[in-house]
């Protein structure tokens, strides 16, 4: 398929002479390469445009650093911009002054919320907290059982007053409804916080059902969970393999539910993870965690610089610049 960005840029570099400032044609050639690389890495189109626009503005007429040629200068700008968007507001989970701190997880179907609930619980427990996982997904078949098993594997308590969608409850439905809860997720969430308060858990992690950006009812339900529990953190959990849908999805959750940060999952694969840039740009909220496997310990704090080089192959590119 395509050469990597490093290969492409190496070619572009060769064709450019050393000059004092970056000219428009230098910029155009390099920005074309970068645009392609960003698209290959699944950065969403509107974000690619915004990003290359910012790079163009900064790059045009910029003074060229002694040791660099114009293209390299642009790459340096690109890298700085990437890291600044990805890591603009890195921060940790904010703990409430009066416990329990309520953390709600939300996202598309299958993004990794339930698995992450266990990881975050374990991670907090390892730091001396006493988290409680709350099973508020009452619609995916056996989501409650899944969270119970996850809690057990993580060694974290689980609050699960409802069984949710089990035993083919809806087998008789001719309509074959899918997104239907068996019990009230909002009630479960609220009761979960109350239970934590009573039993002295200092953090509550609420697992919610997966929902689509276009599902107005379910978005409202998530919004209600947030309001009724006074959630301190709403973490948007998103799959690193997602493509162009990232922008619309992130926007829908940011507007419809309100989010305070994001979690990027399945980073143990080979997806370039351009979604990180899309999500950070669109929500303006920090990406807080990286989820890197199926085990309860596969959780890391998010590293903007690593992500930047992953998206654009920047490791190689920056080495190229150093060799210049």
């Amino acid at each position: 398929m395509f050469n990597s960005l490093s290969d492409r840029l190496a070619l572009t570099f060769k064709n450019l002479k050393r000059k004092g400032t970056v000219t428009e044609s230098d910029l155009n050639a390099t920005i074309r390469d970068i645009r392609m690389a960003l698209l290959d890495a699944d950065v969403a189109l509107p974000v690619v445009k915004e990003f290359t626009g910012a790079v163009r503005e900064r790059g045009l007429g910029a003074e060229v650093h002694q040791a660099l040629n114009p293209a390299q200068q642009i790459v340096k700008i690109v890298n700085e911009e990437l890291v600044s968007i990805l890591g603009g507001q890195t921060r940790r989970i904010t703990l409430a002054k009066t416990p329990p701190t309520v953390i709600m997880l939300a996202g598309l179907q299958g993004s990794g919320k339930t698995t992450f609930a266990g990881k975050l619980g374990r991670w907090l427990a390892d730091q001396g907290h006493t988290p409680l996982l709350v099973a508020a997904d009452l619609q995916r078949p056996n989501a409650v059982t899944q969270l119970e098993v996850v809690g057990q594997r993580a060694g974290v308590a689980v609050f699960a007053p409802e069984r949710g969608n089990v035993f083919g409850h809806d087998a008789a439905l001719e309509s074959g409804e899918g997104t239907r809860s068996f019990g009230d997720p909002v009630d479960v969430a609220v009761d979960g916080v109350e239970d934590a308060r009573r039993k002295g858990h200092d953090v509550v992690i609420i697992d919610t059902a997966g929902r689509l950006a276009v599902d107005v009812n379910l978005m409202r339900q998530a919004h209600d969970i947030r309001l009724e529990t006074n959630a301190h953190e709403v973490l948007f959990v998103i799959d690193a393999m997602i493509g162009q849908a990232a922008v619309e999805t992130a926007k829908a959750f940011a507007d419809g539910v309100g989010i305070t940060g994001s979690v990027l999952t399945k980073l143990d694969g080979d997806a370039r993870g351009g979604a990180a840039l899309s999500v950070a740009t669109v929500t303006g909220q920090p990406i807080m965690f990286a989820s890197t496997g199926e085990g309860v310990k596969d959780i890391e704090l998010f590293h903007p610089d690593r992500m930047a080089s992953r998206i654009l192959d920047m490791g190689d590119v920056l080495t190229l610049i150093e060799q210049a």
Binding site: P141, N142, T145, E148, V149, V150, V166, G168
Partner: peptide, 13 residues
């Protein structure tokens, strides 16, 4: 976690 339960529930459905 609970993958077989999830499938059985689908089976019952």
């Amino acid at each position: 976690a609970a993958a077989a339960d999830q499938l059985s529930t689908w089976g019952e459905r």
